[in-house]
Simulated assay, not measured.
Amino acid sequence: MAFGLDVITLPTPQSSLDTRGEYKNEVLYHALQLTVPEYGPYKVNLNGPSMNRKRALLEIQEGRLINVYFAPDDPLWRELTLPILIPIRRGILNYRLLLIHKDNIELFANINTLDELKALKMGAQYDWSTKSYLENYQFTTVTGASYEGLFVMLENKRFDFMLRGVHEIFNEVKEREATMPHLTIEPHLVLYIPTPTYTYVSPRYPRIAKRLQKGLEMMVNNGDLKSIFDRHFSDEIRQAELRGRRILFLEEEHKKQMLRAPKVWFNHELEAP
């Protein structure tokens, strides 16, 4: 049987210190490899132009510069692309630690409720779905224009905290400790926000969407997704000590949903050390 070559193009990271794509790219390659018997060869181009999420949505609809993008759940993305609704990071982004300025450690030691946290200022990139989501919950946000710029703003105390995923924050602090020595991880709190990361495919590439849907379903069922997840994130989950933190839940119902599908979702009560 003759196959065509499926070419997948993703944007480059938003900065030289942005390593958030490494796990997602490995998952992508594995899903493609599992589907070679049915779909044939593939090529992945990781050198598409760098772009923020707003531009990525425009570009992926056209499918010329990029045709696959990974992003948190967003109704507009689901409407305008071919979404694959399998949380490729198993919901680890649901658990947000707080990146703060070292001068404010004592300030956060007295935070025990959502209302107390809402009284402080949160930094967020202007096109992050989390920004509008939390504004609906009456969080006060300070907007940054770029991923890298937000760290600079926090170093200069332009806001009180940034929310970062368990899998992101430790590496982000380490990579910037020489240039931004006042950034630190708040040691007591977790904000739980339902934020599954989905794969979005250009409407011009339905074959690639079907292929990735099949590959990701295979990875969930055979345990490969969890194996890659554990290899990438087990150290960070251990460092986060989630069971010893106060977890502030925005949506309790989502926690129940996770418990019903342990192959799909990470749950700190079942998996965290």
Rank of each mutant, 00 (worst) to 15 (best):
D6I: 13
D6L: 12
V7M: 09
T12C: 11
Q14R: 10
S15E: 09
S15F: 04
S16K: 15
L17V: 09
T19N: 14
R20Q: 10
G21Q: 12
E22H: 15
Y23D: 01
N25E: 14
N25C: 13
V27Q: 09
L28Q: 01
L28W: 02
L28I: 12
Y29Q: 12
Y29I: 11
Y29K: 11
Y29M: 05
H30F: 05
A31C: 08
A31Q: 05
L32D: 03
L32I: 11
L32G: 02
L32S: 00
Q33K: 10
T35Y: 04
T35C: 11
V36I: 14
P37V: 03
P37A: 08
P41V: 03
Y42N: 01
V44A: 07
V44E: 09
N45S: 14
L46A: 10
N47S: 13
N47I: 09
N47C: 08
N47W: 08
G48H: 07
G48M: 11
P49A: 14
P49S: 07
S50D: 08
K54S: 14
R55T: 01
R55I: 08
A56Q: 10
L57V: 11
L57S: 02
L58Q: 12
E59T: 08
E59S: 14
E59P: 01
I60T: 03
Q61R: 15
Q61W: 05
E62L: 14
R64K: 15
R64S: 11
I66D: 00
N67V: 13
V68G: 05
V68W: 02
Y69Q: 07
Y69K: 04
F70L: 11
F70D: 06
F70K: 00
A71L: 08
A71I: 07
A71R: 04
P72F: 06
D73T: 14
D74A: 10
D74N: 15
P75L: 07
P75G: 06
P75H: 02
W77N: 01
W77A: 10
E79K: 13
L80M: 15
T81G: 08
T81Q: 06
P83D: 05
P83L: 04
P83R: 02
P83H: 06
L85M: 14
I86C: 05
I86H: 03
P87H: 03
I88M: 06
I88V: 15
R89E: 15
R89P: 07
G91F: 02
G91A: 06
L93K: 12
N94H: 13
N94Q: 06
Y95V: 00
L97G: 05
L97I: 05
L98A: 04
I100H: 04
I100N: 00
K102L: 11
D103Y: 05
D103R: 04
E106A: 13
L107T: 13
I111P: 00
I111Y: 00
T113V: 03
T113S: 06
T113K: 01
T113D: 01
T113F: 00
L114C: 09
D115W: 00
D115Y: 02
E116K: 01
E116R: 05
K121A: 07
M122N: 04
A124R: 09
Y126D: 04
Y126H: 06
Y126A: 06
D127Y: 03
W128C: 00
S129L: 09
T130D: 15
T130L: 13
T130W: 09
K131I: 08
S132D: 14
Y133T: 09
L134D: 03
L134I: 08
N136I: 09
Y137H: 11
Q138F: 11
T140C: 04
T140W: 00
T140Y: 05
T141R: 10
T141L: 12
